[in-house]
Amino acid sequence: MTSPASSSEVKYLIESSEGNTFDVSGAALRQSNTFNAMFLNIGADGPIPFTDYNEATLKKVFEYCEHSVNEENYSGPKHQDDLSKWDLNFFNEMDQKMFIDVINASNFLDIERLTSYCCERIARMLRGKNTQEMIKVITLPTAEELEAKQKVEEKKAAAAKKVAEKAAETAEKTETLEELPVQQLVQTTRNKLTRKYLSFSNE
């Protein structure tokens, strides 16, 4: 059940990437600047699709919004030391993957307070560590990994080139037999090559 938001009791239906829907209060949703810009004044018929994010992530994000409904208006980032027990539990409960998903969703929904806390939390994770420890936290690829990746890309490019050459040869043979006018033949071969190359690259 959705309707234009006028009071905090209004509930909105949110649709996740799995196609599941769940309720979120208007007051919680209004912390999202994206929602405010898109739906606040015009309302929404049916569930609001946030289908780039899974249900668990969206529920986590709106859990934070529901909790902070009664807090005073957001006025810039708060230091981590000032976070309440509830806030700390909220962050500690998440694993790294969920944490990244929550930041992404919070950034998309433009929930300033949550995004800023998440960013400060990441800064805290990095602060005070030496270079090697920081690299572990950031999970930067190592030199070996980069080299391996480069090799795979080179192999892919070489294979693509081979396929393109083969395709060109075949096209030449078949099209010549059909005795097409030269201009048309060139165009057809070119189109075929491009298609094959693109389909290969996409794979």
């Binding site: 990244i100 992404n104 960013c119 800064a123 990095l126 950031i138 999970t139």
Partner: peptide, 28 residues
């Protein structure tokens, strides 16, 4: 944690939490 996979606006906000000497250290 794949920090580099985050949107640039988020990475900018993460960096904004650091002092300049900390950013210098991060750049290593």
């Amino acid at each position: 944690m794949q920090i580099l996979s985050l949107p640039l606006v988020v990475i900018r906000e993460i960096f904004a939490n650091f002092k300049l000497e900390e950013l210098l250290f991060l750049s290593f």
